[in-house]
Each structure stands twice: as structure tokens, then as C-alpha cells.
Design a protein around this nucleic acid. Structure first.
Lengths: 205, 205
DNA sequence: GCCTGTGAAGGATTTCACAGCC
DNA sequence: GGCTGTGAAATCCTTCACAGGC
């Protein structure tokens, strides 16, 4: 029964977790697939099928117990712990990422920042001293991190990804406007507002 | 033959367009589905099927003519023109978005910025004067925009979305950490690095 | 009665494999 | 010979509809 969870489902689970978190904060203790579906514009059947991957997590006739379900979800996604993150690139974008206060509350701790520009190396951003990018792999070997954030220009992104990977990083969040390749076993996600907009203009043109 | 293009395909087309743009910049004039697939880690068959939605855009035995294909792609996606964008919210995040210089080169022009904080209303960010958010709908009625960017706290996001929609906006880029609902006919995309990370931790835990 | 869990059906997407054109 | 276009097959994902537990 512990069958493989498909990637589409994995991508929806954090959305459910966030909604359940909001419900829990409101003091709601039980929710039906119907109600959750209305909050998120997802069909109830899909929610039930998705949640079924977590086990028998609902109660027939009642619905889902919010705190329990949330805990299960967080544990399966691995978001019930803290993760060490390294940020590479402190241009405008990297700076904004470093100072973004949405990561820490969710357990993502930026423990190191790298850049190749001598003008910023040695400065402190969000309490972290910027290190010379040339030392990235060495540093990673003695200070493993879980996730790498790439916020360098497109021309440097593939190299940075390669070096993160060879330093043992298996999850990469890519902000660069290109598609770096990663070997099997390494997960990469892209944050690209331009691509998002470009896929919307098709519908409004 | 002008069959409906599925949404999954629409989401991949901008990625192809970006890669073709890079190839064009390098002076490459012809590319095969195989080569393009290797650049992007996509199977050649998928690329051929996807591009087939644009028409008969390849030449058997040769491949795809980069400049022509790029032009077709841009025209079908609607990224060959400029789009008027309104940004709502100029906290840290909104500020970074306003100052991000990746939008303009792709034809996305932020023509107005709104916020409800009197402290920032009237100030100028990236050359645009911040207006009082209360006037959003009125302003939109006389100055239609194509896309709205929502960079307000989660608690205000649904209301902002509703007001953008009632002001005629049919495409929304949501940076708020919640899932606003939109009526049929309105397209919404989410930019959420936290959700992206939360879907990766599953694989590395 | 309400609502989950679930097989079956239906639909969508991806991959295969090769015919046909350059 | 190389590579697109493309039916057919395979796979994956979503929706339906209802049995069964609360």
C-alpha cells in the first residue's frame, strides 16, 4: 500500500498542507474533501485520491482531522524539520532572496552565501557573511547542505549547479532564466516569473 | 488542425522559446528535436508533438529552422508584443519585483503600482509613482492592464485578486503564499519558492 | 445521512516505432 | 541518412459512482 507517490501529487501536497495550516490556525479541527476542494479549486475526488497516498487518513462520514492530517502531511513531505540551504549569487535577486523572511518560518535556513564578485565577498547579508564562490565545493564538503539556491546570471547557472551537485547537494531551487541539467537523483525546481507570465499571455491574447 | 493546445504544452512552449532564443543568439539556424531535447532534458518525441501544435514547423530530414520557429512560437504565445502590467503591493517583495529588470526585456511593462500603506503611496519606485490601493478598480477602468501582479500579504490577496478581476484583468501572477480563487476565464499562476522547496524535501528526506 | 475509500471508466499525456520527405 | 510527422500503444492522471464505515 505504500505505493510510490506520483510527482503531480507531491507538488499538490504542500498546497494542501498550507491550507490545513490555515484551517488549524482558525481552530477548525475537521474538514471534508469537499470543503478543502472549494478552498483550493480542486475536485473532492482528487483530494481523496491524493490523501490516500498518505494512508487511511480520513474518517468515513466525518472527514479529515485537521491537526492529524497536517502532521502526517508534514512528516511525509519532510517539512517538519529544518533544512540547511546555501545561496549562490547576491545580485539584486540573491539579495532579495537572502532577506526574504518567508523561508525561515518554514524551516529553510540559509546557512551560507556565495558570490564571485570581490566587491560583495566579505560583506554580511541577513546575518550571513558572503564567501568567495571559488570555495563553494570545498566548503560544502565540510559543511553539507540540503538545498542549493541558484541566483546567478544564466551564463553561470549550469556551472554553479554542477558544483553544488558535486558538493553533494541533491535539491536545487533555480532562479536563473535558463534550464540547468542535473544528474538523476538530483531534484530541481524553477522559480521564473517571466515564464509564468509568458504562459498566461497565450490565454489573454 | 488548429486543435486546442493543452495547458501542459502551453507551459512548456516558453521554455522552448527561451532555448531557441539562446540558439539564435549563438548563430545556430537549425536544430533537431533531439538536440533541443538534450538541452532541456525533454524527449525528442515530446518536442515534436508539442511543436506540431504550432503547425508543420519542421523540415523532415533537416530539423527546425530556429529563427522561423522562434517567431512562430512568440507569435502564438503572444510574447511578440508588449503587455501592460499592474503591481499591487510594495513591501520588500513588491519592491524587488518592481525593480527586477527581467520583465521589461520580455515585453512586460509595469505601468502602475498600488499599495494601501500611506507611507509608500506617493513615492516613486522604478520610475512609477505608487498609488493608493483604494483607487485600483477606478484606475483600471480608465487604464486597462493585461496582467496583475499580486505581492500583498496572504490575508489581503483574495481581495486584491477580486478587485483586479472586476477591473478587467484576466491574467494574474500571484506571489502571495495562498491560493486565491479566480472565476472562469481568468488565468492565475503562482510564484512560490517555499512550495517549490517543500515539494523537493520529499525526495531528499 | 454524511463522507471516505476505491474499483472502474474515462480522458489526457507520453512514448514508441516507423512511414515519408528532404 | 537524418529527422519530422504521426498513428498506435502504453502510461499516467482524473473523474465517476457507489460500497461501506461512522
Amino acid at each position: 500500500m505504500a505505493l510510490e507517490i506520483p510527482e503531480v501529487v507531491i507538488n499538490r501536497l504542500p498546497v494542501y498542507a498550507r491550507a490545513l495550516s490555515d484551517l488549524a490556525a482558525n481552530g477548525t479541527t475537521v474538514v471534508s474533501s469537499q470543503a478543502l476542494g472549494e478552498m483550493l479549486d480542486v475536485t473532492p475526488a482528487q483530494i481523496r485520491k491524493d490523501l490516500r497516498y498518505l494512508g487511511r487518513v480520513g474518517k468515513q462520514g466525518r472527514g479529515y482531522h485537521v491537526p492529524t492530517l497536517l502532521a502526517t502531511l508534514r512528516s511525509i513531505l519532510g517539512i517538519d524539520r529544518t533544512w540547511r540551504v546555501a545561496l549562490v549569487g547576491v545580485g539584486r535577486l540573491g539579495q532579495a532572496i537572502a532577506e526574504y523572511n518567508g523561508f525561515a518560518p518554514q524551516g529553510f535556513r540559509i546557512v551560507a552565501i556565495f558570490d564571485s564578485d570581490p566587491k560583495v565577498v566579505g560583506t554580511t547579508i541577513a546575518g550571513v557573511t558572503v564567501q568567495e564562490a571559488a570555495g563553494l565545493e570545498d566548503w560544502l564538503r565540510s559543511n553539507p547542505v540540503d538545498i542549493g539556491i541558484v541566483a546567478v546570471p544564466a551564463s553561470a547557472a549550469q556551472e554553479v549547479v554542477d558544483r553544488l551537485v558535486s558538493g553533494g547537494v541533491r535539491a536545487i531551487l533555480n532562479y536563473a532564466p535558463m534550464t540547468p541539467l542535473v544528474p538523476p537523483g538530483v531534484t530541481i525546481r524553477h522559480v521564473d516569473p517571466v515564464l509564468a507570465m509568458q504562459s498566461m499571455t497565450f490565454y489573454i491574447k
